[in-house]
Design a protein around this nucleic acid. Structure first.
Lengths: 130, 130
DNA sequence: TTATTAATGTTATATTATTACACAGCGTTA
DNA sequence: TAACGCTGTGTAATAATATAACATTAATAA
């Protein structure tokens, strides 16, 4: 259904790190963690992140400037993202809700703008922190 | 229905600037524009912005690191924001849709997380740019 | 008045992200 | 094969965004 991307060396290193992280990672945290693998400069990280976001392997949590791996079946849906964010422990979860996706994909505003993409971030308290 | 906040001097200066701007303003653009009024340091701007966001007079467009004045009736709804963003001309419009607000306010995910707030950003092409 | 909270002013610094330039690898195609 | 386009890499420098720390003043409440 969707194209498999062969990740380059830097992309793979950085994806692996993000993928196994239980929490969103920031660019410079990533940089620090991959320096032992030979990635030395911010730009190397940002380039890999840009590409990974573009192909839907990771998502950026805009309100946190951090990145998490996609957990929607390898992500055909990089253009329709929704997350829940706990304001205490900062746990971030990707929301997979057919109802929500459908509602938002079909949403039309009065200005007749045509949407190709959206990002939704919910904030609140997770079970543990409540 | 909602409390009127008496803005402080810096808050008022910065709110006025944002309010009369047709487009979202970035913090350092604001700083540059209010230096003639005696606001000299980034922190003075950020403090005013923080407060204005907190009381709902302005919103932050997270994907753009920029700020716009609220246009939802002086904003009782700082906790439920939705915007449309044109990816070409960067025009940003606040969406007021009772249906959308209602849908999102009532949205429950499977983890039973309780949401107190959300931010939604739609991306696409506006009428002009289509 | 006194205490408390909110706002200000200032310097320095931390964090996040991009520009610019040089080059390497790979597949196409002429 | 050579020339080309495309993607990715490496490196240095710098731009853009945001906060920490500390001292002071203004506004509000007790």
């Amino acid at each position: 259904m969707h194209k498999e991307h062969n990740l380059s060396k830097n992309q793979q290193i950085i994806f692996d790190l993000i993928d196994k992280s239980p929490e969103p990672l920031k660019a410079y945290t990533i940089l620090f963690n991959v320096q032992k693998k030979g990635i030395k400069a911010p730009l190397q990280v940002y380039r890999a992140l840009d590409k990974l976001v573009e192909i839907g392997k990771i998502h950026k949590i805009e309100s946190r400037n951090a990145f998490i791996a996609c957990h929607n079946s390898s992500c055909q849906v990089a253009k329709a993202t929704a997350f829940s964010i706990c304001e205490i422990c900062e746990k971030v979860t990707e929301i997979s809700s057919a109802g929500l996706s459908k509602y938002l994909a079909n949403f039309k505003d009065k200005d007749g703008m045509k949407y190709s993409k959206y990002n939704l971030e919910f904030f609140g308290l997770c079970k543990k922190c409540r």
